[in-house]
């Protein structure tokens, strides 16, 4: 079997998710043995102008140049993977959508803001078709590897559609709510093996919301812990503001 040609691209992001691959340690050798990396700005200078078997997209789509570029990549790519929260759900870049676009442009670029057109932040699938989603800020490497295997096998990967609580409980963590701390685990999609909570942090909702959360009951639970709903919505919007774009 010929090794699939794979390329990494970054849009609006911190490129930290790509760094996760570089941080894999020895595991990265197995990945490199299975694929032929043809373009990856963060680690190599070569470019590739032919078709890609797999294009991995980090970052969200924030202006018309990005729309053009991602559309071109999509046309050249057999399989397109949205990689990291910015790409899969818009991520922190989505916070821009809390403001009027002109206001935010003035704030960032000052007087000359007119020369810097911008658009509402979008996740990649809100612009082009996405075949695989690697959620997380940053991505969880074991899940990324599982998705690469699915790509090699030509089978779909289903992001778990149940709460982070499931994995968190299996890891026998003390519930953050027992500690008196607010956590987005109950409404966030699992798949990260409750990575943050295992390490003493809360869940920030970086993997996106469940498709069918019990909103009414979630409100009751918050009331039980005396947590204002606005606080949770704000926390949720840190990563998930783009979900409002249909």
């Amino acid at each position: 079997m010929k090794k699939p040609k794979i390329a990494f691209f970054d849009f609006a992001c911190c490129e930290g998710c790509q760094l996760q691959v570089a941080n894999m340690g020895e595991g990265v050798l197995d990945v490199l043995a299975a694929f032929d990396v043809v373009e990856w700005r963060e680690v190599m200078s070569e470019k590739w102008d032919k078709k890609y078997d797999v294009a991995i997209i980090e970052g969200s789509i924030t202006d018309n140049h990005a729309v053009e570029r991602i559309t071109k990549i999509r046309k050249k790519a057999n399989i397109l993977i949205a990689y990291g929260s910015c790409a899969t759900i818009g991520g922190v870049n989505g916070m821009k959508n809390n403001f009027e676009l002109d206001d935010i442009r003035k704030y960032v670029y000052g007087e000359s803001y007119k020369f810097f057109p911008t658009e509402l932040t979008k996740a990649v699938h809100q612009v082009v078709k996405v075949d695989y989603f690697v959620n997380g800020c940053p991505v969880y490497i074991p899940e990324f590897v599982a998705i690469l295997k699915a790509v090699l096998q030509g089978i779909p990967y289903y992001v778990p559609d149940y709460a982070v609580c499931v994995e968190c409980k299996l890891n026998e963590n003390i519930c953050m709510y027992d500690k008196g701390v607010t956590c987005l685990g109950p409404v966030t999609r699992a798949g990260c093996n409750s990575w943050c909570i295992n390490n003493g942090n809360i869940c920030y909702g970086c993997r996106g919301m469940l498709s069918n959360p019990n909103e009414k009951s979630a409100r009751d639970v918050l009331a039980k812990y005396n947590i204002p709903i606005e606080l949770i919505i704000n926390k949720m919007n840190m990563y998930n503001k783009c979900r409002e774009i249909i």
Binding site: Y162, P213, K216
Partner: peptide, 9 residues
């Protein structure tokens, strides 16, 4: 059922 968050705990 109305109260259940379906977290599986």
């Amino acid at each position: 059922g109305e109260r259940c968050l379906s977290c599986g705990n």
